[in-house]
């Protein structure tokens, strides 16, 4: 199973909506979360939804330390790989 940018965008929108000045369909992979209009609580909620939906579990600080969507995708996919391997 792969966690894609589209999956992330869907969960972001459900968890926290989108800033009016930001186009989530643009090139956002390497933009910082604060540039995209998301603060730590929005990421906490997003992380919590990813955990629920994908049956993964993050370290407490993992989600907030991932500074960009690409970093978050990597963390989730590493987890998914790990759980597949287990």
């Amino acid at each position: 199973m792969q966690f894609t940018l589209d999956d992330l965008k869907r969960i972001l929108l459900e968890s926290a909506g989108a800033d009016e000045s930001v186009d989530l369909d643009g090139d956002i992979l390497d933009r910082r979360w604060d540039e995209l209009g998301y603060e730590s609580l929005a990421l906490l909620e997003t992380g919590s939804r990813i955990e629920r939906e994908y049956g993964v579990s993050f370290d407490e600080t993992a989600v907030t330390e991932a500074e960009t969507p690409r970093a978050l995708l990597e963390i989730v996919n590493a987890q998914l790989g790990a759980s597949t391997a287990a």
Binding site: A16, G17, A18, A42
Partner: peptide
């Protein structure tokens, strides 16, 4: 209201 405010 913007969508950012609705879930919160």
């Amino acid at each position: 209201l913007p969508s950012r405010l609705l879930p919160q």
